[in-house]
Design a protein around this nucleic acid. Structure first.
Lengths: 102, 102
DNA sequence: ACAAAAGATAGCAATTTTGCGATAATTGAA
DNA sequence: TTCAATTATCGCAAAATTGCTATCTTTTGT
């Protein structure tokens, strides 16, 4: 037997729900922003080092298609591990910095 | 039939091999450093916000044991996705910064 | 225009990370 | 000490990322 759907029944719940959606949206935007930041950082480091994707790939022991994927603004799979391999290969140190948001 | 092992046969190859080992070691150290930096950042943000691991976990929709794992200096699985969820939940913006190494 | 180099995209297996419950260990307050 | 809250650790399934090959598209140089 199918149970009745739970519905939002009062103003407070409605407001909470709206806030939750707002928060979820803010998170989505934040994730898109940081993904793009990572992609552009990799592109910037590689081009400043005057390397092709293939050359950078060889340096860190992977393939060109992987580098291409990492430089895609929409790629969502960035890991600290990969970022560290790249920055270390190019003789840079990576740091994580946070900024307060008002 | 088992083929003969390829051996390093000249000085240049030996030097290349030494350099490779040095580079690999430098990468290992760099990875350990950035992993610890991520772990400490999460701990710092959480404690400054006066939250328990359980409370932060609820904020980002996961469990306490996950937060505990993320705050372990030796944890190697940090992703930008998780770091972004945490920083966004605590109303901070994450940035990736690189420093030249001499 | 042509060829070569560089970069983008697709698909899939293998590896890795995450999510999560259970439980042990630690810390803090009364 | 005792209890409650907090944190650490373990094990495993599910989900996500990586590695890699092949192929297509774009860019560059002659």
């Amino acid at each position: 037997m199918k149970t009745k759907e739970k519905t939002t029944t009062n103003a407070l719940e409605i407001l909470k729900h709206r806030y939750y959606k707002l928060e979820k949206h803010r998170l989505t935007l934040e994730e898109a922003r940081i993904n793009a930041e990572a992609a552009r950082l990799i592109y910037k480091l590689r081009t400043e080092a005057k390397l092709s994707q293939k050359e950078l790939a060889d340096l860190i022991g992977t393939t060109q298609s992987v580098i291409s994927r990492l430089e895609d603004d929409d790629y969502e799979g960035h890991s600290l591990g990969m970022l560290t391999k790249i920055t270390a290969a190019l003789h840079k140190k990576l740091h994580l910095v946070t900024e307060s948001v008002s």
